[in-house]
C-alpha cells in the first residue's frame, strides 16, 4: 500500500472521529520484524469482514441490477432493461429522491439544536450534568419501532396528544402523519429528536477539547457568554460539527423505519412522503422485483456519495482545524 497520505492536518488532529489520522509516527523498521506478521493477521480479520459483508454484496447487487429472474428460478444477466425501467418510473424515483433530500435537510437542523444544548450542558458548575446527558441519550438507545409507535399516538388526528394540546391553546389541529402536507415534516421532527443524543455526545466531546484558556482570554476581553459561544466555541467546534453533519445526512438518506411504522401501507400521505429506501423496499420486497430494487439501491449509493462529496468540498470554506 502506498504511504503518501500523510499530507493531512499536522499536530492537533480533529478532536473527534476521522480515525487514525493523527496516529503514531511511522516506524522505519525492516520488514522481517515479527510485528508485521501480527499486523497482517490482525488486519486480515476486519479486511476479510469488509470483503465478505460489504464488497461481495456490493458486487452481487451490481450484477443483480443487470439481471432478470426470480428468487426461485435464479437470476441471469440480461442487460440494461432494469435501468431502463428506472427511467420509465422516473416520476416516482424523482419524487422519492426529493422527499429524501428534504428530510435530510430538515434533520440537519438538529445539529444547531444539539450545539446549543451541548453548550448549555458544558457550562461550568452545572449540577446533574450526567443526568441530563443520559436523558438526551435515551432516544438513541430506544428501538426505532418503539419510538415510532409512541410518536404515532402523539400525532394521531382523532385522539392524539399533540392535537389535545393544540386544541387547548386554540392552535390548528390535523391528522399530522396522514396529511400529505405535514407527514414528511412530522416524521422529520422525530428524526431530529432521535438523532439528538448522538449529536450531543460528539459535540460534547468536541467542547471538552476547546482550551479553557481561550474562553478565559475572551472573557477578559469583555466578551459575554453569547459572544464567546459564537466567536470562540463555534469556530473551534467546526470539525465536530462537520462530522455530525456528515453522519446526520448519511443517516437521513437511509430513512425507512420511521416512515414504515408511523405511516403504514394505506396512508393517504404515503405517496408524497416516500423516501428512496422506502421505494427500494416496495420494489424489492413487496413486489418481489429484486433487480429493480438493486438498481434503486445503487442509485442510493451514488446519491449518498455525491451528497457527501459536496459536503467535503464545502467544508474547506467553514471548518477550521486549530
Amino acid at each position: 500500500m502506498p504511504t503518501t497520505d500523510t499530507t493531512g492536518a499536522p499536530a492537533a488532529a480533529p478532536p473527534a472521529g476521522n480515525g487514525p489520522a493523527g496516529g503514531p509516527p511511522r516506524r522505519n523498521r525492516p520488514n522481517r520484524h515479527p510485528d508485521n506478521a501480527w499486523a497482517a493477521l490482525l488486519l486480515a480479520v476486519p479486511f476479510g469482514g469488509l470483503v465478505i459483508f460489504y464488497l461481495w454484496p456490493l458486487l452481487r447487487t451490481v450484477l443483480l441490477s443487470f439481471s432478470e429472474g426470480t428468487a426461485f428460478t435464479g437470476y441471469t444477466i440480461s442487460g440494461f432493461q432494469n435501468w431502463q425501467r428506472l427511467f420509465e418510473n422516473g416520476d416516482d424515483v424523482w419524487r422519492a429522491l426529493v422527499n429524501t433530500l428534504v428530510y435530510a435537510a430538515i434533520v440537519l437542523l438538529g445539529v444547531p439544536i444539539a450545539m446549543v444544548i451541548a453548550a448549555l450542558l458544558h457550562q461550568r458548575g452545572l449540577r446533574g450534568r450526567s443526568f441530563y446527558r443520559t436523558l438526551y441519550f435515551v432516544p438513541v438507545v430506544t428501538m426505532p419501532v418503539a419510538v415510532a409507535m409512541v410518536w404515532r399516538y402523539i400525532y394521531n388526528g382523532d385522539f392524539g396528544l399533540l392535537n389535545e394540546v393544540l386544541d387547548a391553546v386554540g392552535g390548528p389541529t390535523r391528522a399530522w402523519v396522514a396529511d400529505p402536507d405535514t407527514a414528511l415534516y412530522a416524521v422529520a421532527v422525530v428524526g431530529i429528536w432521535m438523532a439528538l443524543g448522538t449529536n450531543l455526545i460528539i459535540l460534547a466531546a468536541g467542547l471538552e477539547a476547546v482550551p479553557q484558556t481561550l474562553e478565559e482570554a475572551a472573557m477578559l476581553d469583555g466578551a459575554g457568554p453569547v459572544r464567546r459561544f459564537f466567536s470562540v466555541t463555534v469556530p473551534l467546534l467546526t470539525p465536530s460539527i462537520f462530522l455530525v453533519s456528515v453522519l446526520s445526512v448519511i443517516g437521513s438518506l437511509q430513512m425507512f423505519d420511521l416512515l414504515f411504522i408511523m405511516l403504514g401501507r394505506t396512508n393517504p400521505a404515503l405517496a408524497d412522503s416516500k423516501t428512496i429506501v422506502y421505494l427500494f423496499y416496495e420494489e424489492a420486497f413487496v413486489r418481489n422485483d429484486r433487480p429493480l430494487g438493486a438498481v434503486i439501491a445503487l442509485v442510493t449509493l451514488v446519491v449518498t456519495l455525491a451528497v457527501t462529496a459536496v459536503q467535503f468540498r464545502l467544508q474547506r470554506r467553514w471548518v477550521t482545524y486549530a
Partner: peptide, 23 residues
C-alpha cells in the same frame, strides 16, 4: 485524507442498504 474518509463513510452507509438486497 478527506477523500478517503469520504469514500469510507459514504460507502459504509450505502452498503448497509445494498446488503439488504442480496438474494
Amino acid at each position: 485524507k478527506s477523500t478517503k474518509t469520504l469514500v469510507a463513510l459514504a460507502a459504509t452507509a450505502a452498503v448497509l442498504t445494498l446488503a439488504a438486497c442480496g438474494d
